[in-house]
Design a protein around this nucleic acid. Structure first.
Lengths: 163, 163
DNA sequence: AACATACCTGTTATGAAATAACATAACGGG
DNA sequence: CCCGTTATGTTATTTCATAACAGGTATGTT
């Protein structure tokens, strides 16, 4: 499922991970957004979000499981999967289906549709704001009530086309 | 991952499976399309395509594995996964990432992007022809060279909204 | 026909991803 | 404080997918 070449040496340049003050600020912001809607950013949820924000690219669930403990102790799978479910539900993270991997949300507003440009060479995944007007029209024409939409475009990022 | 309610009793009405002459015709047509491009619709590939065409909705890989043998003997996983890879490559089938499931292609022309309306209640998956002009524009703006695009819209089909 | 070779299949085993089920603990309102 | 609700901890299992290699089959060439 992981389609990008293992030997690709290009920078995974789309989204360098957060650290230091940026990371702390993002986490505090998430706390606020949670308490505003009476949800709890508990320790395991916060830890998984932190790992996603620190990463340079999409992380697999078992990457998160392995990295979970500050001391190197892995988490149990349900711990991480539950946290991911929560983060997705609140719009703090997205699952990329075609990679079986997760990224923190890069968009300002919440509740949006998730759309990604995925580089098959370096593995970068760039979120963008899609215009789904045509898709919605097709759905309505067939009578569907659409609740969520995901779009995943695979190809090569600028750096990997050049290299 | 299988998000649709197990207790849903609605008809899975989008695409009743093929049978009899329709099925035979579809398989013969596939044979022709293969030989036209010097590809071989071998026995296991043909069998997997047949199972997909007969089905009323998306099939999981292990559904195909279990149903593979005419005599009830299951296939070995690689047999089915290889056939699916072939069928996808030639555009005879699509993988629906958010279901871990497969459907036969319902579109006339080949090489198109895959887009689905998926009912979370009855599990129906309806293929449609998306208009990706907006997405392509976004990709080009970021310098991506897009090779393939998949879109999956989750929601409720007309029957399940009514029921 | 004999051979080379490219492609496809059969088989065993394993790896990777996700969830079921149930027990325990923490929060928050009455 | 008590209880319902929500979240976590833990064990085990299920589901999904591929690696690796041996063996077979179609095809073109001489």
């Amino acid at each position: 499922m992981d389609m990008h070449s293992p030997d690709c040496t290009h920078e995974d340049g789309a989204h360098p991970g957060l650290g230091g003050a940026d990371l702390r600020h993002a986490l505090v912001d998430a706390e606020h957004r949670c308490s505003d809607i009476q949800e709890r950013l508990t320790a395991p949820r916060r830890r998984v979000l932190e790992l996603l924000l620190e990463a340079d690219g999409p992380l697999k669930a078992y990457d998160l499981i392995a990295a979970f403990g500050e001391d190197g102790e892995p988490a149990k799978p349900p711990t991480v999967y539950r946290a991911l479910e929560f983060l997705e539900r609140l719009g703090f993270a997205h699952r990329i289906e075609s990679l079986n991997a997760y990224v923190p949300c890069r968009m300002d507003r919440t509740g949006h549709a998730a759309a990604f440009l995925i580089c098959d060479c370096c593995g970068a995944a760039e979120e963008f704001e899609p215009d789904f007007a045509p898709g919605r029209a097709a759905a309505e024409a067939k009578g569907y009530a659409v609740k969520s939409v995901t779009l995943e475009a695979r190809g090569l990022c600028p750096a990997c086309q050049a290299g």
